[in-house]
Protein backbone atom coordinates (compact mmCIF):
# COMPACT_ATOMS: atom_id res chain seq x y z
CA UNK A 1 0.00 0.00 0.00
CA UNK A 2 2.75 2.44 0.96
CA UNK A 3 4.74 1.50 -2.12
CA UNK A 4 1.65 2.09 -4.21
CA UNK A 5 1.35 5.62 -2.76
CA UNK A 6 4.98 6.40 -3.57
CA UNK A 7 4.47 5.02 -7.08
CA UNK A 8 1.45 7.32 -7.51
CA UNK A 9 3.55 10.30 -6.39
CA UNK A 10 6.14 9.49 -9.05
CA UNK A 11 3.65 8.81 -11.82
CA UNK A 12 0.86 11.27 -11.02
CA UNK A 13 1.88 13.70 -13.77
CA UNK A 14 0.85 16.69 -11.64
CA UNK A 15 -0.48 17.73 -8.26
CA UNK A 16 -3.28 15.71 -6.67
CA UNK A 17 -5.59 16.57 -3.83
CA UNK A 18 -5.83 14.17 -0.90
CA UNK A 19 -9.38 13.07 -1.71
CA UNK A 20 -8.51 12.28 -5.33
CA UNK A 21 -5.54 10.18 -4.21
CA UNK A 22 -7.72 8.33 -1.65
CA UNK A 23 -10.27 7.60 -4.39
CA UNK A 24 -7.53 6.31 -6.73
CA UNK A 25 -6.22 3.99 -4.04
CA UNK A 26 -9.75 3.04 -2.95
CA UNK A 27 -9.07 3.86 0.70
CA UNK A 28 -10.68 6.20 3.20
CA UNK A 29 -9.13 9.70 3.35
CA UNK A 30 -8.47 9.27 7.08
CA UNK A 31 -6.64 5.97 6.43
CA UNK A 32 -4.57 7.63 3.70
CA UNK A 33 -3.58 10.44 6.11
CA UNK A 34 -2.19 7.79 8.47
CA UNK A 35 -0.19 6.20 5.64
CA UNK A 36 1.19 9.58 4.57
CA UNK A 37 2.21 10.32 8.17
CA UNK A 38 4.08 7.01 8.27
CA UNK A 39 5.88 7.84 5.01
CA UNK A 40 6.77 11.30 6.35
CA UNK A 41 8.15 9.72 9.55
CA UNK A 42 10.26 7.36 7.46
CA UNK A 43 11.65 10.29 5.45
CA UNK A 44 10.10 9.05 2.19
CA UNK A 45 7.81 12.05 1.91
CA UNK A 46 8.07 15.68 3.05
CA UNK A 47 5.18 17.43 4.73
CA UNK A 48 5.10 21.18 4.08
CA UNK A 49 2.74 23.86 5.35
CA UNK A 50 2.21 26.24 2.44
CA UNK A 51 1.49 29.92 2.79
CA UNK A 52 3.28 33.11 3.68
CA UNK A 53 5.25 33.75 6.80
CA UNK A 54 3.82 35.72 9.70
CA UNK A 55 5.52 39.10 9.33
CA UNK A 56 4.58 40.40 12.76
CA UNK A 57 7.90 39.40 14.26
CA UNK A 58 9.98 40.79 11.36
CA UNK A 59 12.15 43.82 12.12
CA UNK A 60 11.52 45.37 8.69
CA UNK A 61 7.74 45.00 8.91
CA UNK A 62 7.02 48.70 8.44
CA UNK A 63 8.74 48.79 5.09
CA UNK A 64 7.35 45.63 3.66
CA UNK A 65 4.42 44.03 5.37
CA UNK A 66 1.08 43.70 3.65
CA UNK A 67 0.19 40.20 4.72
CA UNK A 68 1.27 40.90 8.27
CA UNK A 69 -0.52 37.98 9.87
CA UNK A 70 0.61 35.41 7.30
CA UNK A 71 -1.61 33.33 5.06
CA UNK A 72 -2.12 29.57 5.34
CA UNK A 73 -3.05 27.73 2.16
CA UNK A 74 -3.01 24.19 3.55
CA UNK A 75 -0.60 21.29 3.67
CA UNK A 76 1.21 19.38 0.92
CA UNK A 77 3.09 16.09 0.82
CA UNK A 78 5.89 15.69 -1.71
CA UNK A 79 8.80 13.42 -2.56
CA UNK A 80 12.08 14.65 -1.08
CA UNK A 81 14.87 15.72 -3.44
CA UNK A 82 17.41 13.14 -4.56
Amino acid sequence: MLKEILKMFRESGGPLDLKALAAKLDVETSALEGMLTTLVRQGKLREVEVGSADCRACHSRLTCAYMVGGVSLGKVYELPEG
Binding site: F9, R10, S12, G13, G14, P15, L16, D17, L18, K19, L21, E33, L36, V50, G74, K75, V76, Y77, E78, L79, E81
Partner: peptide
Protein backbone atom coordinates in the same frame (compact mmCIF):
# COMPACT_ATOMS: atom_id res chain seq x y z
CA UNK B 1 10.19 19.16 -11.04
CA UNK B 2 8.50 16.99 -8.40
CA UNK B 3 4.87 16.06 -7.80
CA UNK B 4 2.87 16.62 -4.63
CA UNK B 5 -0.41 15.90 -2.89
CA UNK B 6 -2.27 18.81 -1.31
CA UNK B 7 -4.62 18.56 1.63
CA UNK B 8 -7.31 21.11 0.87
CA UNK B 9 -9.19 22.60 3.83
Amino acid sequence: SGHFVMELP
